[in-house]
């Protein structure tokens, strides 16, 4: 079987700077790929091309075996490619289910003609998805402002799962969390993986990546420098690849 998502020779330039240079990688359904690299290595630019924020200057993206043209974030979303950004993009002044349905609100008609928000439906559906992901939040009517960092992360993930994410990109999902919450989020990633979703994780926390990722892709200065099966490598080697130590050894 081919990859769920595959990019071939993706390139992105900003003026004279080549932020991503000829990068290819693939992710299978039910597989977690860790994308690693130092600041400025091009990780964020790469995933922003997949999620439609940037338009690539060269290369191709294949999704579910077909070449796709992702012009903007809505294109990616409609294909089932969801991105969870570091800042989560939740409206803190709205409650949990309103955020899950943000932009895609369920409406009902009253008096046969006026369309209004269907709060009950959105609440019930949100409960279902939270249950499926084994997430506990005291009340779905609580505003996001009242939730902890881990709970917010869980809401953001539920939101993408509810909208039928087939592929999930997570940017630093554990960065702002406490230890216990980090573990919960990683458990959630494993659960999603078992449900057949392909995932790319960007993280600086090597320990986290090693505990969930099946494969690791390492980037440096816009170029993919290595790809490793997680079980066949170790943090020391990976750190060496990230900072470029082994090129020093070679010379």
């Amino acid at each position: 079987m081919g990859y769920l998502l595959e990019v071939k020779n993706l390139t992105k330039r900003f003026g004279g700077l080549v932020a991503v240079n000829n990068v290819s990688l693939g992710v299978n359904a039910g597989e977690v790929v860790g994308l690693l690299g130092d600041n400025g290595a091009g990780k964020s630019t790469l995933i922003k091309m997949i999620s439609g924020v940037y338009k690539p200057d060269g290369g191709k993206i294949f999704f579910q075996g077909r070449e796709v043209n992702i012009e903007n974030p809505m294109d990616a979303l409609s294909m089932g490619i969801e991105t969870i950004y570091q800042d989560l993009a939740l409206a803190e002044n709205l409650n949990v289910y309103s955020n899950i349905f943000l932009g895609r609100e369920k409406l009902k008609k009253i008096l046969g003609l006026i369309k209004v928000l269907d709060h009950d439906y959105m609440m019930q559906e949100s409960e279902k998805v939270l249950k499926r992901l084994d997430i506990q939040i005291p009340s779905l009517k609580n505003k996001i402002r009242m939730l902890s960092g881990g709970q917010r992360q869980a809401v953001a993930i539920s939101r993408s799962i509810y909208w039928d994410a087939k592929f999930l990109i997570m940017d630093e999902p554990t960065a702002a969390l406490g230890i216990a919450e980090q573990k919960k989020v990683l458990d959630l990633v494993n659960l999603l993986k078992s449900q057949g979703i392909g995932i790319i994780i960007i993280s600086h926390q090597l320990h986290d990546v090693f505990s969930v990722a099946d494969r690791l892709v390492i980037m440096r200065r816009g170029v993919k420098v290595a790809e490793r099966i997680t079980k066949e490598t170790n943090p020391d080697e990976v750190v060496g690849l990230i900072v470029g130590a082994e090129t020093v050894e070679q010379t």
Partner: peptide, 24 residues
């Protein structure tokens, strides 16, 4: 209070980026 338009109004005030990324 009751419509999608109203909900989006709150969302924009709460977090413009979230609103944009949610396709509003």
């Amino acid at each position: 209070k009751r419509t999608k338009f109203g909900q989006h109004t709150y969302a924009i005030g709460g977090n413009v980026d979230a609103a944009i990324r949610a396709g509003i």
